[in-house]
Amino acid sequence: MAADNEPTSRPNNEVQPPFVHTASAPKPGTVAEALGRRDFKVWRGNALGGGYKDYTAEISAGMVVLDAVHQIQATQAGDLACRWNCKAGKCGSCSAEINGKPRLMCMTRMETLPEGTVTIQPMKAFKPIKDLVTDVSWNYEVKKKIAPFKPKAPEADGTWRMQQFEVERVQEFRKCIECFLCQDTCHVLRDHGKHEVFAGPRFFVHAAQLEMHPLDTVNREPFLKHDGGIGFCNITKCCTEVCPEHIKITDNAIIPLKERVADTYYDPLVRLWRWAFKKGEQPVEPKA
């Protein structure tokens, strides 16, 4: 009986009641200002269909949309599916459409959204798997079709020399975090569903980094013209607008690639030359 009244006398190795948080009890200045509750409409469903469900979340200063989704998950909808990893805009997992705009949930601060209900839906250009998770496997298949990097012979010491200005051009493209927001927003995929014949902005960026790599020796123009379908792009720059890495997709990757393809395939003098000498249409020889 005495033991019941004296919980502090328990030996340490006994099962104890939930520990008391000491060190992490809120310290002055560590609790964010509460900004009240906000309403959310989150798309719930799977490949067979679904619809919006209403939730609310407690918002504090600095919160991002992904925090709200996690809060809803932990308190109201344990099985709410969403992808995320780094929560710092580096991995490109948490792509979704927030109030209709393709964005990373981890980089969208609640304070930046207009008042009223926040709508979150999965990317539209891909088939839904569940809730906010979509089937992006098509992207991985497209990449397999693009010829890999093949460097020229190294210098005598077995390494290569490149200047910083040379590498910066491709470093911009290599910043891509494969969030596929550009694919999601591209009307060729989103509205016209040309997945079979069009690689999409992400893979033009990928092709561009390979084509413009100072050491690469492969020619990917045939791919870009045929399987990649670069001609479908009519440079509306929607992809550039949604890129969380601020890659100038259209100006720096797609347009130069389009120019290369045009030079190779559509230059009237070259076409005449080909016709006259019956050269094949497909340039297959490696770049000079």
Partner: peptide, 30 residues
């Protein structure tokens, strides 16, 4: 740290009693 070991015992007991909502499809709770 000894207190933490005891806390872990409690948590092990609680972990045995966790329950997942919903079904097996992409279910982070499970």
């Amino acid at each position: 740290m000894v207190k933490a070991l005891a806390g872990l015992k409690t948590l092990w007991e609680r972990a045995k009693k966790v329950q997942s909502q919903g079904n097996r499809e992409y279910n982070p709770g499970w």
